[in-house]
Amino acid sequence: MEEKELTQAIKRYLGDDSDNYAIMVTGPWGCGKTHYVENCLRREVASDGWHIVRVSMFGITSEDIFYDRLLSAILSSKESDIRNSLADIGSLSGRFGRFFRHKKKKSPESPSRFKRISKDVGISALMGQMKKAGIQMSVEARSLVELLLGKGKVIVFDDLERCLLDETRLLGLMDTMIES
């Protein structure tokens, strides 16, 4: 299949609301699949409002590493909607502000400060400021992935042949993501 035909087939698939599954593009190692995703498909689907998050599956040995890698790919993506998602997380601190105000000793950090930090720097800075303010929170990578992924994202799992998870577990993880 030619590049243009493949792109049109993927765009048709993404445009069909009745499909909520996964597609697989195969080819021998070194044939240019990653190059195609990064240099052609990313641009083409962006024109329809889709954003690609590419995740290397190289060396993944557990579900925790899978979600950590996926979260890292989401956060390192340069798409503007990812930055907006982080800003949305900052607004969560405002929603939870009433819990912070229950403290006997008022924290010098206000929820609006949390919001600004999360917009500017991201999750790690938000968590760091919360820790300094005496607020402890544990969030698993899987929960953050589910929070940050929404409509308009195309997740590309690259280097599947180098993933160390057995096929059943890997396909189960993908199925869970599709279902949620």
Rank of each mutant, 00 (worst) to 15 (best):
R95L: 14
G90N: 02
I74D: 01
S143E: 14
K132P: 10
L170K: 04
I82Y: 01
I135N: 00
V156A: 07
L173R: 01
M130I: 12
L92R: 15
M174L: 09
A87L: 11
L75Y: 03
K78Y: 05
R169F: 11
S80D: 06
S110F: 10
F99Q: 06
A133H: 01
F114K: 02
R142F: 04
L165A: 12
G172L: 15
T168K: 13
I135D: 00
F157G: 02
S93N: 05
G94W: 07
F157P: 00
R162Q: 07
G122M: 05
I89G: 11
L171R: 02
L126D: 00
L171G: 06
I123Y: 07
L147S: 13
S93T: 11
E146V: 04
E146G: 08
F114T: 04
D159C: 12
P108R: 08
G134P: 00
S76D: 08
C163L: 01
G97W: 02
S118Q: 15
L170R: 06
L148R: 01
K151S: 15
S143C: 12
G122C: 10
R142K: 11
E161S: 15
N84E: 05
K115M: 08
Q136L: 12
R116F: 10
V121Q: 09
I89A: 13
F99Y: 06
K131S: 14
A87Q: 12
A133D: 04
R169H: 11
E161Q: 11
D158S: 03
K153E: 03
L173C: 04
S77Q: 05
S118V: 15
H102R: 14
D120C: 05
L170E: 06
S110D: 14
S110W: 07
K132W: 10
V145L: 03
L148P: 00
G128A: 09
S80I: 13
P111G: 07
S118C: 15
Q136A: 10
P111M: 08
V145S: 02
L164I: 10
K131E: 13
F99D: 05
V154G: 00
K105V: 09
F99H: 03
R162K: 08
S85F: 07
E79L: 12
T168D: 15
M137K: 14
G150H: 06
